[in-house]
């Protein structure tokens, strides 16, 4: 279980507002990337986000370009998970392969509000908030392992080093 606060947004949050196109070909370090996250959606986000916070959104989160930074910047900002009704295909894969948990939930996005305190039970597929329980498709252990290892290459290395 890990705890965090909710940042709530709507449907179709696209990769441009998560990480602006003008930064994609600049080589920024993780802290700088974190500082750019959601710049064009919510300027207060990068200043106030705390490690463990959770983004909650509607349908098709991460639509748009395939830029990996849109997943990496949230990971670097300390976001432990994005909970949404659905994700764009490329974003979903990029996020997990870069170490950001993406959880698809039918009921949490409508019910949760910005500032809510929540707890995520990653293996049980449950989100708890003020006595309410929501569900998501739990990531299987192997995929959760990729997220927890910090991404696919790190995970593969770890896996290979095991006897």
């Amino acid at each position: 279980m890990s705890k965090g606060r909710v940042w709530k947004y709507g449907d179709n949050v696209n990769t441009d507002v998560i990480y602006a196109g003008k930064y994609t070909y600049q080589q920024l370090d993780p802290a700088e990337m974190a500082a750019k996250s959601l710049e064009d959606l919510d300027p207060s986000f990068a200043k106030n986000v705390q490690p463990g916070d959770v983004i909650v959104a509607g349908k098709n989160f991460g639509c748009g370009s395939s830029r990996e930074q849109a997943a990496a910047c949230l990971h670097y900002a300390g976001v432990q998970a994005v909970v949404a009704k659905s994700f764009s295909r490329i974003y979903f894969r990029n996020a997990i392969n870069l170490g950001l948990a993406v959880l698809q939930s039918p009921d949490a996005p409508d019910a949760l509000q910005s500032g809510d305190e929540i707890e995520i039970d990653f293996t049980g597929g449950r989100i708890l908030s003020a006595g309410r329980v929501f569900t998501f498709f739990p990531l299987p252990e192997s995929v959760l392992g990729i997220v927890q290892a910090g991404g696919l290459l790190e995970w593969t290395k770890k896996k290979l080093s095991r006897p």
């Binding site: 894969r93 997990i96 392969n97 995929v143 290459l153 593969t156 290979l160």
Partner: peptide, 19 residues
């Protein structure tokens, strides 16, 4: 279709995660 990093990982592990 998948990305290059993922393909390298498949070459190494013969596994992939799929939604």
């Amino acid at each position: 279709g998948i990305g290059r990093t993922e393909m390298a990982s498949i070459w190494a592990t013969d596994e992939i995660w799929l939604r």
